[in-house]
């Protein structure tokens, strides 16, 4: 029974999640193009917004890039980690970013719970998403502290598993003996991927990257009496 459940969670669920992500994202973009947005509420409340938005985004970006680096270049990560001091620098930085992400998420919850205008623009799917993200990041922080050094064992054990998924020949032997918290972190990650196209997370797919390098613009209002 355990084997079937493992197979379902680690060999079937990933494909269902990614399939849902691709199909629903395309369908939503074609039929509801202008819903591809983070649906910013900054204009409704701006002070608490900073302490939710900034820690969350900087934290999650670094953490996501770290996971991506371990997936794409595991040998580089293992080479970097071939000295205890370098492992400590990498892991402490990653843990700090995980904590920042968690702080950002809790600040989001506090901000939306304390403001009636924000509660009106908070949908049920937002609530589901933020709960799943809190679970995901809390599990990640727990794993970082209770099961160090994740950057190394991820590169050694989970990267081969993820690569086996990409080659359509899932090898779940890499994950079935992992600690429970690690398994839950992986399963919840796939659930977030599956939920992604139904939420405001789709804004990740349409990030206005040119904002990063184009010159600042002053938008002048046009009024007829100035003409």
């Amino acid at each position: 029974m355990g084997n079937y459940l493992d197979y379902l969670l680690f060999a079937v669920l990933p494909y269902v999640a990614v399939g849902t992500l691709l199909l629903v994202s395309i369908q939503r973009y074609r039929s509801e193009t202008f819903t591809f947005s983070s649906l910013s509420s900054q204009f409704l409340e701006n002070k608490k917004h900073f302490w939710a938005l900034v820690p969350f985004h900087y934290g999650i970006l670094v953490i996501t890039l770290g996971h991506l680096a371990a997936f794409l270049t595991p040998r580089t990560i293992l080479l970097w980690n071939s000295h205890p001091l370098r492992v400590a620098v990498l892991e402490v930085s990653a843990l700090a970013c995980g904590i920042l992400t968690l702080i950002g998420l809790f600040a989001m919850v506090a901000r939306r719970a304390s403001n009636s205008k924000l509660r009106v623009v908070t949908s049920p799917i937002d609530t589901v998403l933020v709960v799943m993200l809190i679970v995901q990041v809390a599990l990640g922080v727990w794993i970082a502290v209770a099961h160090p050094w994740g950057s190394s064992w991820f590169a050694a054990s989970l990267t081969p598993y993820l690569r086996s998924l990409f080659t359509m020949s899932p090898d779940i032997s890499y994950v079935t003996s992992m600690p429970l918290m690690v398994k839950l972190h992986i399963i919840n990650a796939f659930l977030v991927v599956g939920l992604f196209p139904f939420t405001r997370l789709v804004h990740v797919l349409v990030i206005p990257n040119p904002y990063l390098w184009r010159k600042t613009q002053v938008v002048r209002w046009y009024r007829g009496d100035n003409a």
């Binding site: 820690p55 892991e91 702080i103 502290v145």
Partner: peptide, 19 residues
Amino acid sequence: QLTFALFGIVGAALALVLF
């Protein structure tokens, strides 16, 4: 592990001050 966790918390606090 406790030392590691404290380093992480201090790192996060420093990042908040920096922001």
